[in-house]
Simulated scan of single mutants.
Amino acid sequence: MLFLDRFRELAVDLGRSPRLTPHRAIEEWSDFVDDCMEGYEGTLFEYWDDMSIRSFLQRVIDDPVVKEVPELAWFKSEIQRVDEKFAGLLAQGFEARGGRGWWERKIPRVAGREMAENVKEQYGYEVEVI
């Protein structure tokens, strides 16, 4: 099976667009991380929703069929590049209870006003507003 075919099959199975491509999914993850670096402007709910792209990417990486395709090395290295940037941001962040992946266990220390208010209400943390 081709990587793109399996990727799209997983996308549909996991509630994402059948038109989503590996490049676009990585780009979504990268855009999200860039938004967080600048101070995420949405709500906490939107933050978790936007972050769900990373969990989707992990499901693709962990898929037994995908593990057999040569494109996996490229895919993982592109995700790793973005992951390193986000991990650096979260190193300064606050603990968030729950979360299956490392990316869900902390929240950034800086955010836009709306997210900062949500974090204060939900977790009691004073997030720096950018």
Score class of each variant (00 low, 15 high):
residue 40 Y to D: 01
residue 118 N to A: 13
residue 86 F to R: 09
residue 65 V to D: 02
residue 130 I to C: 08
residue 67 K to W: 02
residue 94 F to S: 06
residue 81 R to L: 09
residue 84 E to N: 14
residue 69 V to G: 10
residue 17 S to C: 10
residue 111 A to N: 09
residue 57 L to N: 04
residue 78 E to V: 00
residue 4 L to H: 12
residue 95 E to T: 08
residue 117 E to I: 07
residue 94 F to E: 02
residue 122 Q to C: 15
residue 122 Q to E: 04
residue 51 M to S: 07
residue 96 A to G: 08
residue 66 V to R: 05
residue 60 V to T: 00
residue 16 R to W: 07
residue 26 I to C: 12
residue 69 V to S: 11
residue 74 W to M: 11
residue 92 Q to A: 12
residue 36 C to Y: 05
residue 61 I to L: 08
residue 128 E to F: 13
residue 37 M to C: 07
residue 82 V to L: 06
residue 52 S to Q: 14
residue 37 M to G: 12
residue 130 I to Y: 12
residue 5 D to S: 11
residue 104 E to Q: 13
residue 10 L to W: 03
residue 47 Y to T: 01
residue 130 I to R: 15
residue 48 W to N: 10
residue 91 A to N: 07
residue 106 K to A: 14
residue 118 N to L: 05
residue 128 E to C: 11
residue 80 Q to G: 12
residue 122 Q to N: 06
residue 58 Q to P: 00
residue 83 D to W: 02
residue 91 A to Q: 06
residue 63 D to V: 03
residue 117 E to D: 13
residue 47 Y to W: 15
residue 11 A to Q: 04
residue 75 F to T: 00
residue 12 V to T: 01
residue 15 G to F: 05
residue 76 K to C: 14
residue 43 T to K: 14
residue 86 F to T: 00
residue 89 L to K: 15
residue 27 E to G: 08
residue 58 Q to C: 12
residue 33 V to K: 08
residue 43 T to P: 07
residue 119 V to D: 02
residue 67 K to D: 07
residue 45 F to I: 03
residue 112 G to Q: 10
residue 18 P to Y: 09
residue 28 E to F: 13
residue 90 L to G: 05
residue 73 A to V: 00
residue 117 E to S: 15
residue 107 I to R: 09
residue 100 R to A: 12
residue 54 R to G: 06
residue 45 F to T: 02
residue 44 L to T: 03
residue 125 Y to Q: 02
residue 105 R to E: 00
residue 96 A to E: 02
residue 31 D to E: 02
residue 34 D to Q: 15
residue 81 R to N: 09
residue 83 D to I: 01
residue 110 V to R: 15
residue 12 V to Y: 03
residue 85 K to W: 07
residue 101 G to K: 09
residue 48 W to Q: 12
residue 6 R to L: 07
residue 107 I to G: 10
residue 19 R to L: 12
residue 9 E to T: 01
residue 42 G to I: 00
residue 61 I to Q: 08
residue 40 Y to T: 05
residue 26 I to S: 13
residue 14 L to E: 04
residue 73 A to P: 06
residue 8 R to L: 05
residue 116 A to H: 06
residue 97 R to W: 13
residue 54 R to Q: 13
